[in-house]
């Protein structure tokens, strides 16, 4: 198990930002997850070792944050916000549309491993609702058509 140079460089630098080692844990977990798609046994052991924590402590933290996961996800994590502002502008239909189109439900992954669908809480796009995030990219003022275009693009990208 090896992290990218960027990860290592950021990690080493972040350690200098705080009086305690464990302070880097939360952002580091997210970056580690970005490298491997999920937080594997090895990643947990490695970070526990580096930060003088028990694996239990690391798991306690991981399981608290909704963006962190212990199971692999699809290449593209489609996160549809259905919270109030988006709901008022049709987010439920949007989410249902995703379910139909991808043939999967909340926190499920397409057989080709390309997409994971997730219904998420407010992502801070209320004024541009309805909105979703695919991995970290925002897609706003969505309609079912626009949604289809977006997903098509990711499918294409994912194929090559």
């Amino acid at each position: 198990m090896k992290f990218s140079p960027e990860f290592e460089q950021r990690f080493t630098q972040m350690l200098t930002h705080y009086p305690t080692r464990r302070s880097v844990l939360v952002p580091t977990l997210l970056y580690a997850q970005d490298e491997f798609g999920y937080l594997s046994e090895e990643v947990i052991q490695e970070l526990a070792r580096r930060l003088d924590l028990t694996e239990l402590e690391v798991r306690n933290v991981i399981s608290y944050y909704s963006m962190l996961t212990l199971k692999p996800r699809g290449k593209y994590n489609v996160q549809v916000c259905t919270n109030i502002a988006c709901m008022l502008r049709g987010a439920d239909e949007l989410f249902a549309h995703c379910q139909r189109r991808l043939g999967i439900g909340h926190k499920q992954t397409t057989p080709d491993g390309l997409f994971t669908l997730e219904e998420v809480e407010c992502i801070g796009a209320c004024c541009w609702a309805p909105a979703m995030q695919v991995n970290y990219d925002f897609h706003e003022n969505l309609t079912t058509d626009k949604l289809d275009q977006v997903l098509d693009e990711y499918s294409k990208k994912g194929m090559q």
Binding site: T54, L56, E57, R59, N60, S63, Y64
Partner: peptide, 8 residues
């Protein structure tokens, strides 16, 4: 320290 709290 064998017990922890997980999830939320």
């Amino acid at each position: 320290w064998a017990l922890g709290v997980q999830n939320r």
